[in-house]
Nucleic acid binder design. Structure first.
Lengths: 240, 240
DNA sequence: GACATCGTTCAGGCAACTTTGAACGGTGGT
DNA sequence: ACCACCGTTCAAAGTTGCCTGAACGATGTC
């Protein structure tokens, strides 16, 4: 009978192999980008990650062999995508633990206003942006992307959006996508972007919950914001 | 400005470091055992994992350095426990993906009756046992263990237990713990053990939903079981 | 058809990790 | 005080994984 740590145990072998794939910064970031923002061509990944093509290519070959990504060839472009939607759950759990463990691991480290909320182009990123997306998906106002090509879409139940002061009908979707998931650079989790993300940020500023800091990208949470936002966006808590 | 894959990014560095710790069968199994069943002494771990003491010791030193486990010395024994309860979420996500990905990765592999349900001493293990524990915890009939010493306990809302045909008052807790989390050897997720686990299994057999196969530890799900169990235990689905 | 672009593969050299065996302090029992 | 046991550390050896640079096939453009 195989022991607890015997690699003949299929699930154990599969789990350690998966963890090994996630244990490299290039591979992990690649998977996070694909899971949050959908399929990318290899050249887009090379540009985004700022690494050499062979270097990324070697990692992509590993990810392919491990069955974590699929490739589709379109002309001379190779389009990579997450193989199984469930991977997003693993990536999210990993990032959440990593983010939560940081203050403990580095006692000197404090939570900065930048961590909490800052602008990413015209929408909110940081813990607020991440919590926003999670909240709206959970409440059915948005349908989650699967990282395979199925994009973030408006969901059946717009009530959570209305509660934030946004009328889904007024979102200008003519010139840009209504909603996109955008990988947060700090927390490594997807946050809400697109026309809807911009509209939500505008409304929160109008309501006096956030103030754009001049000259920086920091979004300062006002006293009213600390009072109301945790209730409006469950998952966005002061927590130290 | 640091790039996407730069290890100066704190969360990325933390996440890859965590994944590297999980990428070894001994370390991963150790963490799974501690998270599911609570603190263990090193000698208990050595016996359970069937590895040499120095070999395990080196891995435990790594886990300590990574801040994933805490040690407490009691006499000549070293008691190890999970450092942060949140780790259980990461381990669960990893095991779930690894289990789900298996049929895809190995086309020849089929789901066996053993995977679905078998006995572990006197209670149910396999997918059914795992789903049972998850369901009862989610419904508030049990409080989740945190892997640090806080054990599985009866929770405030016993309704989910009653729905399974079990009267919480009738569980004999005098001679053994009422409920324990027990690491499932196949799926690498905690399942329901203890007096309560035994009582639940007895009731499911009495109701004709399961049949103990003679001479083996397999629990056969009857036609009635396939009809009723997915409704009684959300999370326990036929799925292929 | 010539050329640039895109993606992939390969071999070398370098760094990191894992295992093993032996040795070492600390604790409890006799 | 002696001994058995528990846990930990260390160095050497073998293995594995990663990056670099060059090369190659395939595609689309001029």
């Amino acid at each position: 009978m195989a022991g607890w740590t015997d690699l003949d145990e299929p699930v154990l072998a599969s789990a350690t192999a998966l963890a090994a794939e996630l244990a490299d910064p290039i591979r992990l970031t690649t998977l996070q980008l694909l899971a949050a923002e959908g399929p990318h061509t290899m050249s887009r990944l090379v540009a985004a990650l700022e690494v050499s093509a062979p270097r990324l290519g070697n990692h992509l070959a590993r990810l392919r062999a491990a069955g974590l990504v699929d490739v589709e060839h379109a002309g001379r472009h190779a389009i990579y995508r997450i193989a199984r939607p469930g991977l997003a759950d693993v990536l999210a759990a990993l990032s959440r633990y990593a983010g939560d463990a940081l203050p403990t691991a580095r006692p000197g480290r404090e939570v900065t206003p930048d961590d909490i909320a800052h602008t990413c182009y015209d929408h909110a990123a940081g813990r607020l942006g991440v919590a926003l997306l999670g909240h709206l998906v959970e409440r059915g106002a948005l349908t989650a992307p699967d990282g395979r090509g199925e994009e973030l879409r408006l969901g059946p139940d717009a009530e959570a959006l209305v509660a934030l002061g946004v009328d889904p009908g007024e979102v200008d979707a003519s010139r840009r996508k209504p909603a996109t998931a955008c990988l947060d650079r700090i927390h490594r989790l997807p946050h809400l972007g697109g026309a809807l993300g911009a509209r939500v940020l505008d409304r929160l500023v109008e309501q006096g919950l956030l103030v754009r800091e001049e000259g920086t990208r920091v979004l300062v949470v006002t006293a009213a914001g600390w009072r109301d936002l945790p209730r409006m966006v469950p998952g966005f808590s002061p927590r130290a």
